[in-house]
Simulated scan of single mutants.
Amino acid sequence: MSEDARFEDGGDHPLNLGAMDTDDLQVISALVQDAVLPVTEIAFQKRHHRLGLLLNRVRHEDIEAAGKSGRPVERVQSLLTIENALAVGAQGVDKSDKDMVLSILSVAFEAGQDGAGHVLLTLAGDGALRAEVEALEVTLRDVTRPYIAPSGKAPSHPE
């Protein structure tokens, strides 16, 4: 008899997730919501058809446990990679401003023909990154140990 996975089963292990469809991408989107990154940590490797972002994400998978135990909220550096990228466009992102810090609100897929489409990263402040892809393939991999978020609190989104 098999059971569905639970958050508790993950423990404190680093995440290493992949998305090949929109359902999987919704999970990654939820995990990178409120992640921040300097504009200098975005790299488009045209030759390898890869867009990579080194971000500092809130450990959403740990917020409930942290709240119950009184621990502060943690962040972790993660690599968000969009494979099969043919081109990348940006709105409201000034790559020449080396001090610019971006905050991710969501990641979505706009389907095109034959599995192709666009991966859209919506950013706070009306910014966006849009990667034209041959096929949807996004990965999220934690690359450092968690650290206490500077604010010590979970981000909130008042309506």
Rank of each mutant, 00 (worst) to 15 (best):
V27I: 15
R59S: 07
L121G: 13
G11C: 07
S29D: 06
T22A: 15
R57C: 10
Q45G: 02
D97G: 09
S156G: 09
V101E: 11
G125A: 02
L15K: 09
M20N: 13
M100K: 13
G18A: 11
L121F: 10
K68W: 09
I104F: 03
D62E: 03
D62K: 13
A128L: 01
V133A: 01
F109C: 12
G115L: 11
L25D: 15
A116H: 05
D21M: 13
G10I: 11
A87C: 12
T139E: 02
E61M: 03
P14T: 12
F44L: 08
E41G: 00
S96Y: 10
H157Y: 00
T22M: 14
D114S: 11
S78C: 10
G115Q: 06
L105V: 10
E8P: 05
E159S: 08
V143L: 04
A87W: 12
R59V: 01
H13L: 09
P72E: 10
N84E: 00
G11D: 09
G117H: 08
V119P: 13
L25C: 15
D23A: 06
D114H: 03
E8Q: 11
Q91N: 15
A128C: 01
P72K: 14
M100A: 15
A85W: 11
A5V: 14
S151C: 02
L53C: 10
E74S: 07
V73I: 15
R6S: 13
R141N: 03
H157D: 06
I148W: 08
